[in-house]
Amino acid sequence: MKSFSRQQKQLVLLLAPATLFLGIFFIGPLLIMAVYSFLEPGLYGGVEWNFYHWNYGRVLGWADGFYEEFDLVYLEILARSAGLALATTLLTLLVCYPAAFWISRMSTRGKALCLFLITLPFFSSMIIRLYAWILILRDSGFANQILDALGLISEPLGLMYSSTAVVIGMIYIFVPFMFLPLYSSVEKIDGKLIQASQDLGAAPLTTFRKVILPLTLPGVIAGSVLVFIPSLGNFVVPSMLGGAKVVMIGNLVEQQFLYARNWPFGATLSMLMIVSMLVIVSFYLFKVMKNQPQS
């Protein structure tokens, strides 16, 4: 009995620091943010402690124009953000899938080197990596210079400040997030299974669909979720590469907090962002699971 309680004491001692810290500085702020989304915005940036559901009404449609006005633009921005995040996720998957196979067939040394090279960008500054794309995409940038020198274009393509630029930037930033989970499931595939499928007469595409894809599904799912979530909430990439033309939900939240100073509405928008993230991710998981052939 005595040793039992002593063990418990040790456990409490080990857990206490992180519990207190995350309780106060992680769970606490998130709860307060949730509460804030139901408060009335004050006149000069503060809040009034009244229950106020019109913040949600402004976005979702029941604002009557007396307290707050409904504007479809918020839902449009939310939908656009989801669309761009989805496009980023699928394209990143497409970019990484063959690369994972390429590396899985290398020698041990080659694998180690390539994994190092792919992880390295994750450790280098995100803002610098985005900056590189500004140098490439802007009107006097590298891409336009090359195309001009080759005589393919006579005036700069407006690559910057477009959805394309934002998606390229996000793919570039999130490649390691997709690649690593994907690679770990590609790496595990037993070559004999592919051989067996071919010996049994399956066409390459059938082998891919019936054998390779289901086996790599855990990696596909993990990678997709890891790319989708930060893409949907992103505000750095659209503000660097999208300018004022491509506004995502993250930019809107930033605006509400730092410029419009309507904190309750900003909190509402980020609550809606979290909800749509959960909905889309669970829908995606559901779809993918359903498509998985029975083994």
């Binding site: 857990l15 998130l30 943010m33 804030y36 907090f257």
Partner: peptide, 23 residues
């Protein structure tokens, strides 16, 4: 606890940023 330590990594950073600002 496993959940508590997992969520901060997948939480969109802008949400955590503004929650901390309010706090």
């Amino acid at each position: 606890y496993r959940l508590l330590l997992f969520v901060p990594m997948v939480m969109p950073d802008i949400v955590l940023g503004i929650a901390l600002l309010i706090f």
